[in-house]
């Protein structure tokens, strides 16, 4: 029991989306009543398990958790948002919308309800309105990096959803730029987190600004030593840049620097792959592939 509570706490802290793990560990806790022994954490666990149960389709478990929370905190906006989520999950979208509107009528600044409204619009199949609502929300709450991340994802999804050719060209030009803008805001709000730099670097690469992407990938590896995805990014960029004609821009990376970085990335990738427990044949194959890239 102690271990389950610890794992749930870790998942709350790292914010990873693992509803199957949460339900697997949380269901026995809730059903046996052992969750009450956690005192203050019990309500957080109830909330966590409720959301995970909704994701996994276990509506009875979710209902049970939400009832427990309602009994303890009647009328709380946070509990009502959970009820709204419950309605969203089963498909009663208008009713969910009513709940969120009611919460916002009472307290304009309730961020939870505002965010749920955004996702409700998306679930209803209105991505453009969802983006509009999110932009309006971010205009008011500038410091919410989660919101900026979500907006970046919205733009990238838009990209994937355009099927007409001309629209695609426009989309590629515009959406990547918009997503890059959002990632820049996220980086400004959380400068030490290499994962956001990685996403920004990959967006830049997709936009074909390879020089800039290379610098960002270097930053990722600088922030997190031997980050494999970052090293691969470096290799991709350096191979493109080395094949292209040397740029006349004085601020661009010089040829010798490119070669040095390329060599470094290759070496680190070989070191990372060579140090594992894989069979020797796997190691040699991967080494050959990395060196030829």
């Amino acid at each position: 029991m102690v271990n389950a509570a610890k794992v749930l706490q870790d998942l709350r802290a790292s914010a990873e989306r693992k509803p199957d793990v949460v339900v697997r560990l949380g269901k026995p806790l809730v059903e046996s009543g052992a969750v009450k022994k956690l005192d203050a954490d019990a309500w957080l666990v109830y909330e966590q398990v409720a959301i995970a149960a909704l994701e996994v389709g276990d509506d009875t478990l979710a209902h049970r958790c939400i009832e427990a929370l309602e009994a303890k905190f009647p009328g709380s906006a946070r509990v009502r948002r959970l009820q709204g989520m419950q309605l969203e999950a089963v498909g009663r979208l208008e009713d969910a919308g009513e709940i969120y509107k009611a919460i916002l009528r009472e307290d304009e600044t309730n961020v939870l309800a505002a965010k749920r409204q955004v996702m409700l619009l998306r679930t209803m199949g209105l991505p453009a309105e969802a983006i509009g609502a999110l932009v309006k929300y971010l205009d008011i709450n500038y410091t919410d990096f989660e919101g900026w991340l979500q907006l970046a994802d919205f733009y990238l999804e838009e990209l994937m959803n355009t099927f007409v050719f001309l629209d695609q060209l426009l989309a590629a030009f515009l959406r990547y730029a918009q997503a890059a803008f959002c990632m820049e805001e996220v980086i400004m709000l959380q400068p030490q987190n290499h994962v956001f730099h990685l996403k920004y670097a990959e967006i830049l690469y997709s936009q074909d600004s390879i020089g800039l992407a290379l610098k960002q990938f270097c930053r990722v590896v600088e922030l997190c030593k031997d980050h494999v995805r970052g090293l691969y990014g470096i290799k991709l960029c350096t191979s493109r840049l080395l094949k292209a004609a040397p740029s006349r821009n004085p601020a661009a990376t010089s040829q010798e620097d490119l070669k040095a970085i390329d060599l470094l990335a290759t070496e680190r990738l070989l070191a990372v792959y060579g140090s594992g427990n894989a069979a020797a044949s796997v190691k040699t194959t991967s080494a050959k592939w990395i060196e030829s890239a």
Binding site: R17, I51, E55, E88, A89, M119, L149, Q192, L223, R229
Partner: peptide, 24 residues
């Protein structure tokens, strides 16, 4: 920071939508 997994990038707890196949 090195311990932070890339999964934290896509997880935005306040922005979960339920229209995915998890339920099915």
């Amino acid at each position: 920071m090195a311990k932070q997994s890339i999964e934290s990038l896509d997880a935005r707890p306040s922005f979960y939508a339920f229209d995915h196949r998890g339920r099915a």
